[in-house]
């Protein structure tokens, strides 16, 4: 069966750790890192990459334009 799989790439230095992407992900893919970026923000990352469908929700709500989204069907 064809399964849609996605992945996001977070621009760690652009991320301000606002967590708006986290609540907008329908499959709870995103969590905040323990580490901080050079500005001191905990940045978003894929905690559950397997569940990403590449729906783009997180990217279009990101105020800082820090997320790029990829998607394949296999």
């Amino acid at each position: 069966m064809a399964k849609v799989r996605g992945a996001i790439v977070v621009d760690i230095e652009r991320c301000k750790g606002c967590e708006v992407c986290v609540v907008n992900c329908p499959t709870d893919v995103i969590a905040m890192s323990k580490d901080v970026n050079s500005k001191g923000y905990h940045y978003a990352y894929m905690e559950h990459p397997d569940d990403c469908t590449g729906c783009t929700n997180c990217a279009i709500v990101c105020p800082d334009g820090a997320i790029t989204v990829y998607r394949i069907k296999n």
Partner: peptide, 29 residues
């Protein structure tokens, strides 16, 4: 998955790339 041919969304290049002066989570951006 993470390959140019599979790209479905990237922030527009018509944003200059300058770090936004807004607070985290502010709607202006």
């Amino acid at each position: 998955i993470i390959q140019e041919k599979n790209l479905v969304y990237r922030p527009t290049r018509l944003m200059t790339g300058a770090t936004l002066s807004y607070c985290p989570g502010c709607g202006h951006g």
